[in-house]
Each structure stands twice: as structure tokens, then as C-alpha cells.
Design a protein around this nucleic acid. Structure first.
Lengths: 149, 149
DNA sequence: TCCCATGAGTTGGAGTTTCCAACTCGAACG
DNA sequence: CGTTCGAGTTGGAAACTCCAACTCATGGGA
């Protein structure tokens, strides 16, 4: 706990400060889909143009997104994921898997996975790198400064 | 794409409607930490009491959370995760892993994983259930109604 | 008996964000 | 000359969030 406020110090809360504003994760989804242009992102997400502009600035300031000039006159820009931005893919795929399991009858998007010549549909599960078992099975009370009690 | 609006039909977007409001994921984190009481959740998250009340109603309406009367006079209630609510653990752990990797020097919470008598620290990675490889390596253009282009 | 504490909220009003439609700016196209 | 493209800005209204204070029922202590 945070000594004076009682608020738990937490990586989830820190992530949410960057990713938790409205439209941020859908913007990252579009960039993952190789949709790099402002207008295309507006169309595919439905985000208001002004909000999208400020979200892209925030994502850039946090090093998740890079703004690249792809043409000089008139100046035109496109947005690309940085390595850190790519690293949000796990979060996005987990959200997708949750939505697929509980919020949708059909599966609107199926990612392909594996060698380019032998792809199969991606079926994402969070596992433990140490033992290889699913993370949510055999999960116990955490320890550390942000832990309960 | 959604025929008339151009907005992509998407499980990520659907998940965000339920999980994406401010404080929702931190509330689920507390319930995962076995923090079931209203006042305790207020303290640990820092959420305003009125917002917490409406978030709990929304989570309950979406079947992620169950409101249980644990005392009759005066009536007192506690909140518990449903099976569907537990299923957000992958999203929370992915967010935690992202925050640990990029937003924090130390690791404020370490979950324990495995058999209760032989636990080890959980190190979460999203993998493909089909081939066992990390989901973000060898990820290709998706297919389906919500896919790009 | 009176006063305070506990726990799960609700209320009113101020402050902050988000939304929306319309506008800009420079260059190319017809 | 008028239109289109693409990446934004702008102003004002609507919605959401925050905060402090209040409620309501009961139990405990002086």
C-alpha cells in the first residue's frame, strides 16, 4: 500500500494510466493491423478526430508509437508501433480472447500463427514461462509490496 | 467492417465496453486479491465511492461480479468474482506483465504459481494453445469479418 | 443515555473529458 | 476554378468523474 493514501502500488494501475484512456487500445489494435494513417484509424475505430489526435500524442510521448513523415509537400504523417508498442499485443490478444469467450457468438478476427508457410489459427492462452502451465490454474496469493493485507 | 459506419466489429472493442471504464479493471484486481468489501476496495484503488458503486452495478449486470449479502441487520454486502469475472485474470496479468516490463523498476506484486506445496513465481507469457509457441512470435495478418482491408 | 464507529452506500455541485460538426491548410487532379 | 485527399484544429454542448458531506441501521463504550 501507498503509506499515506492506502492506494496499492501496482503495475496494472500504471499500465492503465497509459493504455486505459478511451480509444487508446483500439488505436493500438489498428496499428497492429498495419493501419497507419490518421483517417483510416478514425474510420475503423469510430474515435472522434480530436481525441485520436491527442491519444496519438500521448502514445508517442510514452514511446509506444512513432510518428513518421512519409511525404514532404504537403507534409503527411503515419503512425507505427515501436517495440514497446508491439509489446501491448499480449494485452490486446487477451482482451480479444475474453471477448470471444464471453461477449460474442462468432469470432470476427482470427490471427494466423507459426511459420509463414505452415500457419494455423492462433489460440491464445496465458501460461507460465517457468512451468508451461496455464497461468490461471494454480494461481496463489501474491507476495510483494502491492500484495493484499 | 460495420457496413454503414465503417467501424470494425471486434472482440477487443466489445471487451472494452465492459472492462474499459475507469476503475473497472482495478476493481476486478481487488476482487482477485480477495478484497471483497466496498470500503476496502475504495481504499486500495482510490476510486471515488459513487463511481465504485456504479462500476460494481455494471460489472454485476455483465455477470462478472456477484453481490452477496453476508449479514442481515444492518444489511451488508460483499462482492465476489463469478466464473466469468475470474476469466479476466488473463487480461489483468497481461497488463501487470506489461507494466512490469516497461513502467516500473521493481515488481510490486509477484503471484505464486504451481502446486501449493511447490510454488514458484509466476512469469506470464501469452502462448498459442495449438503449438505452444509465444503468441507474439510468428503472428500474421488476421482473417475474418473484422480483419483489415 | 449519549456519543462514536462501522459499512455500504447516496447526494449536489464543481471540474474534466468526450463528442460532434465544421473548419483549415497545402498540393494534386480535372 | 472547384474538388479531393489527408492530417489535423476549433468551439460549444453533452457526458462523465471527482469530492466532501450526508444517510441509515446497528453495536459498543462511558
Amino acid at each position: 500500500m501507498n503509506a499515506d493514501t492506502g492506494v496499492r502500488p501496482c503495475s496494472i494501475a500504471r499500465s492503465m494510466e497509459v493504455l486505459g484512456q478511451r480509444w487508446s487500445l483500439l488505436v493500438l489494435r489498428e496499428l497492429l493491423f498495419e493501419n497507419h494513417r490518421f483517417d483510416a484509424i478514425v474510420k475503423a475505430t469510430g474515435a472522434p478526430r480530436d481525441i485520436l489526435a491527442t491519444r496519438l500524442r500521448t502514445l508517442e510521448a510514452n514511446g509506444l508509437v512513432e510518428r513518421r513523415r512519409y511525404q514532404d509537400r504537403p507534409p503527411r504523417f503515419a503512425y507505427h508501433l515501436t517495440a514497446r508498442g508491439w509489446d501491448t499485443a499480449e494485452v490486446l490478444l487477451s482482451l480479444m480472447a475474453f471477448g470471444d469467450r464471453h461477449l460474442s457468438d462468432e469470432r470476427p478476427v482470427t490471427w494466423q500463427h507459426g511459420q509463414p508457410d505452415h500457419p494455423h489459427p492462433l489460440d491464445p492462452v496465458l501460461t507460465c514461462r517457468t512451468c508451461g502451465e496455464p497461468a490461471t490454474e494454480g494461481l496463489h496469493e501474491p507476495t510483494g509490496p502491492g500484495a493484499p493485507r
